[in-house]
Design a protein around this nucleic acid. Structure first.
Length: 417
RNA sequence: GGAGGAGUGCCCGAGUGGUUAAAGGGGACGGGCUGUAAACCCGUUGGCUACGCCUACGUUGGUUCAAAUCCAACCUCCUCCA
C-alpha cells in the first residue's frame, strides 16, 4: 500500500489521481506483470466533453503511458437511460439523432489524448449501444436480475439522495446502474477488461459491476476512482462566464480555454499541475513554492501546458501570447476572439448596445445597458459612458478592428467585412 | 381506488385579491481592493422602440374594476390509507 510495484499505480498515486481503489495489492501485482485493460465510461449528453471529463481522459492517458490498454466506452446506450447520480431532476431524454451527433463530437477529443490502433496497448473506442440495444428484456432479467437486490441498491448514495429529498427516481433511471454493471461484464468478456475507473460518485456503480462479474463469470475485476474535481473554495469546476468549459475547439476557443486555467485559484495550482499537465514532479514542486504574484508564472505554465494538450502547442502559445499582450502589456492583441460585422452597418453607425450583443458580451440590450451604467464597457480600452454611443469607421484602429471589452477579462474584437 | 399536501424567477425559498417584475438566500455578472487568485466590501440580476409598454408565479378556462393570490377542470409530484 505504501509503495506500488507497478508504474501505473505509482504514477496515479504520485500525481494525485487515486481516491479509492478496490483490492489494490492484487491490481498492483497484475499491472506489474502484464498489460491491464481498463475503461472509463463517458456519457454523450452534449456535443463535446468538458473539463469535468478531463480527469477520466487523463487517467486513460496515464494508463496507456505506463504500458496498458485503455478503452473509451461511449455511453450511446446508457445515455438513452440517464444517470441519476448527483441530479435532482430526471434528465431530459435525448433522441437517437442527437446522441449520434454528440458521439461524433466527442470522438475527436480522444484522439488528442490517446493513441488508437490495433496494437496491444493501443486505445480502442466502444459504444455500449452495440450490446445494450440488443438485449432481450425477459432474458436479461432472468440472467442478471437475480444478482441485484433492491435492498442493496437502495443504499446507494445516488438513490438515497433522491429519496431523501422526495424527488422522483424513475425505474428507468434506476436501471442505469444495472446497465453500467453489465457494461463492465461485457467489456471483460469481449476485451478482457478488468478495471473500471471513474469519479468517486461512480464507486457504487463500479462495485456493482465487479460483483456481477464475480457472480456470473467468476471474474476478478477492479475499481479505481478519483476525487471529484472541485476548486479549493469548494465550487464545482468547469464553469466560466460563458458556461461549461468545453474541450472541443468549436465550442470554446483555445484562448478561453487557456484563460480558464490561467484563472485557477492559488491553492489549486499544484494539484492541477499534477493532474492536468505532464511536467516532472520535481518541477511542479518547485513551482508550488512560488508565493504571491510569482505564482502567476506557475498558472501561466499550467494554462499553456493544459491548453497544448487539448488544442496543440501552436494554439496554446498563441493564447498565451494574446494574454500577455492583453493583460500585461495592455496592447491590442489580434488573438482575442473576433466577431465579424458588416462594414455597411458600421458605416451607418452601429449602436453600442447592438454591438455588445452581437459580440456576445451581453445577452440582451438591457444587460448591455447595465454594463454601461456600471462602467464596465470599454471601446478600444476607453471607457464608454453612454449607451447612445455609435460605433463608426473612425473607431477602427490601426489593426483594422474595434476592441470591445466588458470588465477586465472579457474582450472581443469586431472586424468589419 | 380513497384522503391530504405541493408545483413561484438560473437554483433554493417567502408571498394567500391591488402599493408584487414578486422578500430573503445561493449562484452568476459588474465595480473596489489585488496578482487576470482567494477572502472581503459595494452594486446588478425578465424583455422592449423604456418616466411607458409587454411577458412571467404547473396548464387551460372562469370570477373580479383588479389575481401568483379566489373558483373549476386538467397535468405532474409527494405523503398516508386500500
Amino acid at each position: 500500500m505504501t509503495s506500488y510495484k507497478s508504474d501505473f499505480l505509482r504514477v496515479m498515486r504520485e500525481r494525485g489521481y487515486i481516491h479509492q481503489c478496490s483490492n489494490e495489492e492484487a491490481l498492483d501485482a497484475k499491472a506489474n506483470t502484464r498489460i491491464v485493460t481498463a475503461y472509463v465510461g463517458f456519457d454523450c449528453t452534449a456535443a463535446s466533453l468538458h473539463v469535468g471529463n478531463l480527469l477520466g481522459i487523463m487517467m486513460l492517458r496515464k494508463l496507456q503511458q505506463t504500458g496498458h490498454k485503455p478503452i473509451v466506452l461511449i455511453g450511446g446506450g446508457t445515455t438513452r437511460v440517464g444517470d441519476p447520480s448527483g441530479k435532482n431532476d430526471t434528465r431530459k431524454l435525448l433522441n437517437d439523432e442527437q446522441i449520434d451527433q454528440n458521439i461524433a463530437g466527442i470522438r475527436q477529443v480522444f484522439e488528442k489524448f490517446l493513441t488508437f490502433g490495433d496494437g496491444p496497448t493501443d486505445a480502442v473506442m466502444v459504444n455500449n449501444a452495440d450490446w445494450l440495444l440488443k438485449l432481450n428484456y425477459i432474458e436479461f432479467l432472468r440472467d442478471y436480475g437475480p444478482h441485484f437486490t433492491i435492498n442493496r441498491m437502495m443504499t446507494f448514495e445516488s438513490v438515497k439522495q433522491r429519496l431523501d429529498r422526495e424527488q422522483p427516481l424513475t425505474f428507468l433511471e434506476f436501471n442505469y446502474m444495472i446497465f453500467q454493471a453489465y457494461d463492465f461484464l461485457e467489456l471483460n468478456r469481449q476485451n478482457g477488461c478488468i478495471l473500471q475507473m471513474g469519479g468517486s460518485d461512480q464507486w457504487g456503480n463500479i462495485i456493482n459491476g465487479i460483483e456481477l462479474g464475480r457472480r456470473v463469470d467468476q471474474a476478478e475485476l477492479y475499481a479505481l476512482t478519483t476525487a471529484l474535481l472541485t476548486t479549493s473554495s469548494g465550487a464545482k469546476m468547469g464553469k466560466t462566464a460563458k458556461g461549461a468549459v468545453w474541450l472541443n475547439e468549436d465550442m470554446l476557443s483555445p484562448y478561453d480555454y487557456w484563460q480558464f486555467w490561467r484563472n485557477t485559484e492559488d491553492s489549486d495550482v499544484g494539484r492541477f499541475l499534477r493532474l492536468f499537465t505532464e511536467l516532472p514532479l520535481e518541477e511542479i514542486e518547485e513551482l508550488e513554492k512560488l508565493e504571491g504574484a510569482d505564482l502567476n508564472e506557475a498558472k501561466k505554465l499550467l494554462a499553456t501546458t493544459a491548453c497544448a494538450m487539448a488544442h496543440g502547442q501552436e494554439k496554446a502559445l498563441e493564447a498565451s501570447e494574446t494574454a500577455l499582450k492583453t493583460f500585461e502589456q495592455g496592447t491590442m492583441a489580434s488573438g482575442l476572439p473576433t466577431v465579424e460585422i458588416s462594414a455597411g452597418d458600421l458605416d451607418n453607425g452601429l449602436g453600442l448596445l447592438t454591438a455588445l450583443v452581437t459580440a456576445g458580451l451581453a445577452t440582451s440590450n438591457s444587460e448591455a445597458r447595465r454594463h454601461i451604467k456600471g462602467g464596465a464597457v470599454k471601446i478600444n480600452d476607453v471607457k464608454a459612458d453612454s449607451e447612445k454611443v455609435q460605433l463608426g469607421g473612425d473607431d477602427i484602429t490601426d489593426d483594422g478592428v474595434i476592441k470591445l471589452s466588458v470588465g477586465k477579462k472579457r474582450h472581443v474584437l469586431l472586424k468589419a467585412i
